[in-house]
């Protein structure tokens, strides 16, 4: 590893660890040292590592909840406005708002009389509402996770470091990024060496 002075093209310093325990303890040490632009990498989720590095809990569940509500609302109104409700059947409940909002739109739809049941037969609308809730939530969960994580991102400076290939196999890494306010090429490397890693290497940009 080179000890040249800080180059402009440096992403950060990468410390390699052999066990989950080692990376976990090192992550705690790095956080306590006051580094903020830090990330730990592992081939599988290590319990609590994200907190040890100093990240905040994700708000993804809130997004998924909103996604689910959106699905439910869309499905309810889709069915109610197309197959079901004439403004007349809703307005006793909603005090005239529905016909004001929807105007003539509903009167164009061909409403089907199925065995004389009410047009607004909401219990029969529950199964599609349920399915749409699940569908929208699932889409929000996966795509929300990918977007918050910044994927797809086919390339990343970390892939410039040969050692990082084992991050998906059996090695654990901590990278202190050069953009960290307290980052100093020599001092940071010295600090990382103190955590007894297998190696400390540069990650070129």
């Amino acid at each position: 590893m080179s000890t040249k002075t800080e180059k402009p093209g440096l992403f950060g310093l990468l410390a390699e660890f052999e066990t989950t325990q080692a990376v976990f303890d090192a992550a705690n040490a790095v956080r306590k040292e006051g580094f903020t632009k830090v990330e730990a990498y592992s081939p599988f989720p290590v319990e609590g590592l994200w907190e040890a590095v100093g990240h905040k809990r994700t708000w993804l569940p809130v997004l998924v909840f909103i996604g689910g509500l959106t699905g439910a609302t869309c499905a309810f109104f889709l069915q109610t406005l197309t197959a079901g409700a004439h403004p007349d059947s809703l307005d006793p409940l909603l005090d005239g708002t529905v016909s004001t909002l929807t105007g003539n739109m509903l009167s164009f739809n061909y409403r089907m009389n199925i065995a004389g049941r009410p047009f607004f037969s909401w219990p029969a609308f529950i199964p599609p509402i349920f399915e749409m809730t699940i569908l929208f939530s699932a889409f929000t969960a996966l795509f929300g996770m990918l977007i918050l994580n910044g994927y797809p991102l086919p390339h990343h400076p970390l892939f410039n470091n040969k050692k990082f290939e084992r991050a998906s196999s059996d090695r654990f890494f901590i990278c202190i990024e050069a953009t960290d306010p307290t980052f100093d090429r020599e001092a940071t490397e010295h600090f990382l060496q103190g955590l007894k890693p297998l190696s400390v290497t540069e990650v070129p940009l």
Partner: peptide, 30 residues
């Protein structure tokens, strides 16, 4: 998609995986 196994990514990932499991369970019954 360029997955690199960052701790925070895993945290969101595990959240997602668990939520998808929670969503699939009533789904499969339905």
């Amino acid at each position: 998609l360029g997955w690199r196994g960052a701790a925070m990514h895993w945290h969101r990932y595990e959240n997602t995986y668990l939520m998808l499991a929670g969503l699939s369970t009533p789904l499969v019954l339905s």
